[in-house]
Design a protein around this nucleic acid. Structure first.
Lengths: 199, 199, 199, 199
DNA sequence: TATGAATGAGAGTTCATTCAT
DNA sequence: GATGAATGAACTCTCATTCAT
């Protein structure tokens, strides 16, 4: 109401972050330019460097914001899950929600690669994923999945890897892949150690 | 002894492909420039476009050559494997051979992403991976692994995904991950679940 | 007093258009380069593409601006002419004002040729000349010149053609040529009907 | 028969001249490059500079050869013409044979402009056109056309100017234009010498 | 009589960033 | 808080030309 100027400033900043997330997916991290960002956000070119110290800083903040949001939300859902099937299903849901060519999948992949060349980004992203991995491992442990830490790592990696491969072509459909992935998280059973498929 | 000129040309071309593979991993696909390539290969800048129609074409050829070599060689090894354990072990070996920050892992990841923005690259890479997926699925089928196609896809994706995540930090070690991955390829056996080889 | 930045921008743009018109004549349409334009206009190389989407766009705008100005002004003079002799004399004046090697003549010739390879330029230039041709034909018709449209086309073409030929060497002087050209615009006379066209 | 190597050399040279004439019309004088010429002529790039001292020299020779051929042939036809109508008709024939966008018209126009920036080309082309102008003037004189030199210059210029304008759009058709041009070459008549102004 | 690999300059264009307003 | 003009380096790519073979 009062601080119209400050509000416009916040709004411009928000639109720039939104534009950055879109453009990283569309063009690739290294191909996003100041002018592209300004145009997409509907602001003057100079505004980019007014709100952010560099284009890299804007891209980093945008990517981490989106990834933090999605991962945090999934972690929360995991924590709320009451039954094992519910918890595991949440992970598998990614396979139907994202096809490897959607903005979210691409943003994740681009950011993983960019992190390999930016120490600060690598650290932040590492923390995010480590936290998520722990949350997932905790759930798996509750459901008697053996080697819960390594299993959580493999599940998360498999899902990201599937996204990466799907960008190249369809591949097997989500239902089939989900069935295979469930083998990873079958709970250990006293008499019949490591079953998990025959259903 | 005669064709010194032609030989020099072949050598320059070869060095450019070598430089391209290195630089894609080091700097990222979109950040490789004509002059960087020329300098790394030890040739004049103009030579790049003398031998290749564009920088994109050079990067594409370089990436496909390396990936083709590695995948073909792995496929051949798979085909030669006499026992199931040997075959499965070959796949798991990637986890000890590559740590996600080595040139080969990075080249793979960069090329996957670049393929999303280059139709020709996507097609070529798709063929390469489809062929490998089929070879792997065939082996899995021989060992009575259920849903061999989807399983092959998940195994390959998990390995690439692990590489991607490892670039961010160490994570669980290869031995643990391998143990988890073996759950995916346990043969379906009516009476005695999870043995898995003797064929 | 306030908008010094905007003023500087307008001034730079203006100087670039001026430089473009000069350089098209001096070097030829296809030989005008970004850096030549920048140097002549006294601006940094990057400024060219800040103000214009491409060098082609700059050349096109510059050429059309100059040609539009000259043609419009001549059209206006034609319209204001009170007597036939005055109107015809305006056309003939070009022969004394321009010698085929002056910037204006060369700009016209270069632009005609460039228009053959640029659809948009061809359209714009075509409209400009069609409009002028109509204005001239109207005047000729008022003075009972037979076939005024074709006559206007021939007069305009002859003048441009003379400029083109003069670039190669002097040729007959303007007075003689003017006398010949006047044959084209002799009014039809009842008793002695305009030999040379009918049949 | 014997000198196969020498024959191939002559043939390559001939094909290069042919390619040059085509490409000047297609791309414009300044846009013709060594590689384009070699490709069009079906020879290796190095051959261009083996047969010609520079690309400019090749273009110049090609243009002059074509123009010399056409002008010489027209001059010969003019000389052979038995009646006035026949002679004048030869000139007018250009208007139906060329439409301003054909290779010949474009080659002429491109060469006129190039001559303005190449002293040697200007001299050669000037001689060619001067010679033709004299031949035409002689014919006009024989038919009692007043001011035959200036008239010849205007006729030639009008035809080239019409070609130049036609490249921009159709304009009046050849029949109408020819009718107008015939006014220029009407023979002087005892009683009414050189009418056409006083109105 | 060619050949084709190489050179290095220069083409048009886009870049992240700065700064006076 | 925002602007937009400007900078100068770097981008991909094409150039005419040379020269060892």
């Amino acid at each position: 109401m009062s601080a119209t100027a400050a509000d416009r400033g916040r709004e411009a900043r928000r639109r720039l972050l939104e534009a950055a997330a879109e453009l990283i997916a569309e063009r690739g991290w290294a191909a996003v330019s100041t002018r592209m960002l300004a145009e997409r956000a509907g602001v003057a070119p100079g505004v980019v460097h007014y709100h952010f110290s560099s284009v890299q800083a804007l891209l980093t903040e945008a990517a981490l914001t989106v990834m933090h949001g999605l991962i945090e939300q999934t972690g929360t859902s995991l924590a709320r899950a009451r039954t094992p099937g519910e918890a595991l299903g949440l992970m598998m849901d990614f396979l139907t929600a994202y096809d490897g060519r959607d903005p979210t999948s691409l943003l994740f992949a681009e950011t993983y690669l960019a992190a390999g060349r930016d120490e600060e980004l690598r650290r932040s992203l590492g923390e995010l994923l480590t936290g998520f991995g722990r949350a997932l491992a905790d759930r798996l442990a509750e459901h008697q999945v053996p080697a819960p830490d390594a299993t959580a790592a493999v599940v998360a990696a498999a899902i990201d890897g599937i996204m990466l491969h799907r960008a190249l072509g369809p591949g097997p459909d989500a239902t089939e892949l989900t069935a295979v992935l469930r083998r990873l998280v079958a709970p250990a059973e006293p008499g019949h150690p490591t079953r998990g498929d025959s259903s």
